[in-house]
């Protein structure tokens, strides 16, 4: 993978969570509102860029046998950093996201990029990979969050859209609505890819 590919593959070819089908837990759980999706996506992006950086820097130092343990320590450290700074500077958002911020530690996207990419590539391209996959995740979560918020609460980023006469489709902001929304989007993306004759990564 060259530098340009590393910088762009996260937006369509390996778009999380749709294409990688990883990181589904936060995608389903925090996307009841667009703002939460955006916040979660940016938190993951930060962790991803720097975990890729450190793991790439340390790739010749870390012995193979303890690599997963080392990656988890690096990732967990970054996640707690994000959690603390979010509490200190974006308190309302951290209240909204709650337990899902600490759970970024076990987000498979991050460990997946560490294992599959950062552990065998130089620093800069690893960071580009983290940026691209992270921003792809952010876009996806914001999209799912927007759809659910607009349909389920009649607002977008907290702004009222339809006036008081609108009866919200409350199902969409509850858990089943997340599955429905994610499934429909995934289906549409797959149909589009098939039309264009793209080859699927997953079979």
């Amino acid at each position: 993978m060259d530098f340009k590919q590393a910088l762009t593959h996260g937006f369509w070819r390996d778009l999380p969570p749709f294409r990688l089908v990883l990181g589904l837990c936060p995608s389903l759980a925090v996307t009841a509102a667009a703002e939460n999706g955006l916040g979660m996506g940016l938190a993951v992006t930060f962790v991803l860029i720097f975990s890729n950086m450190f793991i790439s820097l340390l790739r010749r130092v870390i012995p193979d046998k303890v690599r997963i343990a080392s990656y988890i320590v690096v990732i967990a450290t970054l996640v707690v950093l994000v959690e603390l700074s979010m509490k200190a500077f974006f308190f309302p958002l951290s209240q909204q996201l709650g337990i899902y911020i600490p759970l970024i530690v076990v987000n498979c996207i991050i460990l997946g990029r560490a294992e599959a990419f950062a552990s065998r590539n130089p620093v800069l391209i690893s960071m580009a990979d983290g940026l691209s996959v992270g921003l792809g995740f952010t876009v996806s979560l914001t999209l799912v969050g927007s759809l659910r918020e607009i349909l389920g609460s009649g607002t977008w980023f907290g702004m009222g859209l339809f006036g008081p006469g609108f009866e919200p489709f409350g199902f969409m902001v509850k858990a089943p609505g997340a599955f429905l929304c994610l499934g429909v989007l995934l289906g549409l993306m797959n149909a589009w890819s098939r039309r264009r004759g793209e080859i699927f990564v997953q079979t």
Binding site: S70, V74, L81, L84, S85
Partner: peptide
């Protein structure tokens, strides 16, 4: 193995406790 893990964990603990106290 032990050395690498110990060094990584210590660095992590040190940076976290620093950030935690300052915030």
């Amino acid at each position: 193995l032990v050395l690498v893990l110990v060094v990584i964990c210590s660095l992590s603990a040190a940076s976290l406790s620093y950030v935690r106290t300052s915030l």
